Structure formats: structure tokens, C-alpha cells
Simulated assay, not measured.
Amino acid sequence: MTDQQMYMTDTKGRLVPIAAVKPLDKLRDGLVAGMMGRAQGLRDDLAAFKADVMAEITAFVQLAAGEYEVQLGGIKGNLTLRSYDGLREIRVQVADRLVFDERLKVAEQLVGQCLADWSADARPELKVIVDRAFKTDKDGNVNTAAVLDLRRLEINDARWKKAMEAIADALTVTGTKSYVRFYERTAPDAPMKAVSLDLAAL
């Protein structure tokens, strides 16, 4: 019998002789390990399934483009494929992964100066929008969509415009993320419902 078979590791990283571990603790450990193994297998199967779906859809798009003698580099943006009877859909979304560099801090400071000067006249909702835009999550990341929403505001102030330029310059595309979702309905006039592949939603 190896050392690994003779001991179990506790929550503090210590090796505990198996004979000293309570039977219920052994059963619980085995249950968790077994279920985790199955969960990891399902995760790997889903990852392989997604890769197959994306590959087949890309091939189909290329086939469709070939009928019109057009060469496409791949799936970009949003795409929906429907079954002939209209009861099933596959929706694909390919979105850029966006991050901001240090120039976002410059923009935040300029916007802060604007709000300080406008404090008497600034609408409360504008302050809420700005606070939400620059608020960071627990990992220190800002909400990209909320920051970009600031650029839609028409404000005629040189500092504000400079801040919006800083936001645009700070934005960098670091890659793309693809999403694939499945929908179905029972009749042509019924609403589409998502086919959930999220264990928590089942």
C-alpha cells in the first residue's frame, strides 16, 4: 500500500492516517470526488460539443457563401439558424473582449472635474450614470458597457470631450468570445424558449 493510499489530506494540508478518519468523512469525500469527476467530464463534453457546433456552423456559412461565390473569413457578429419548420433555432454571437488601459483613469479624472464644476447645475441622474460607469467590481474591473454609454451623452464641454477621447483611446480588443445558444418552441406562434445547458437552471 502506498503512502497516498494510507493517508488523507485534511483542510489544513496535513496528512491524516486513513484509520483515524471517521467513516462518514470517508464516505463524504468519496461522494464529492465521484460527483466532481462526473461534473468535470460533463464540462469537457460541453466544451467539445461547443467546438463541434462552431466548426459545423462555420462550415455551413462557408457553404452558403460559396453559392454566391463569396469567401468569408468566419462567423462575425450575430447569426441565427432556424429549422425548416421554424420550431428550433441556434443563435451564435461572436463578441470582442474589451479592456481599458491606464488612460481610463485620465478620463475619470476629467469627468470628475466636470461634475465638480457643474455640481450646482448637474442633474442627479448624470452623477448616478458616471458613478456606475467608473465603479469597479471585486476584481478591479469596470463595466465596459457603462463606460461606453458615457460617450453617447451629448455634453458640450472641452474637458468632457477630451475625457471621451481618452476613453476611446484606452479601449483595446484583447480577443473574441463566442457564444452559442439553442431555442425551441412547440408551435410556430409560440414564443421561443432557451434550451438550458446550465445545471443550476434545470
Rank of each mutant, 00 (worst) to 15 (best):
D45M: 10
A48Q: 13
A59S: 09
A64M: 09
R123T: 12
G73S: 09
G112C: 00
T136C: 03
A55I: 08
A146Q: 13
V147Q: 08
F60A: 05
N78F: 11
L31Y: 11
A47V: 11
E108D: 10
L79I: 02
G66R: 04
A166C: 04
D157I: 11
N141L: 11
A59Y: 06
K127S: 15
D45S: 12
P124I: 15
K105M: 01
M54V: 11
F60L: 12
V147Y: 10
R43Q: 03
S119C: 00
L153F: 10
N78S: 07
L72P: 08
Y84E: 08
E89P: 03
V111M: 07
I90M: 15
D101N: 15
A116Q: 05
K138I: 09
F60P: 04
E165L: 05
Q62A: 08
R159K: 14
R132S: 04
R132A: 13
I129S: 14
R43V: 08
Q71V: 05
E89F: 04
L126V: 11
S83H: 09
L126H: 10
Q62G: 02
V61T: 06
Y84L: 15
D96G: 13
L126G: 14
T144F: 03
L42E: 10
D137T: 04
K76F: 02
A107P: 14
A47W: 11
G140F: 10
P124Y: 13
R132I: 05
L81H: 02
L150D: 14
N156L: 03
M164A: 04
L31G: 06
S119I: 03
A107I: 06
G37S: 07
K161M: 09
L150E: 10
P124R: 15
E89K: 04
A163V: 00
G112D: 08
A95I: 06
L115E: 00
E165S: 05
K135V: 02
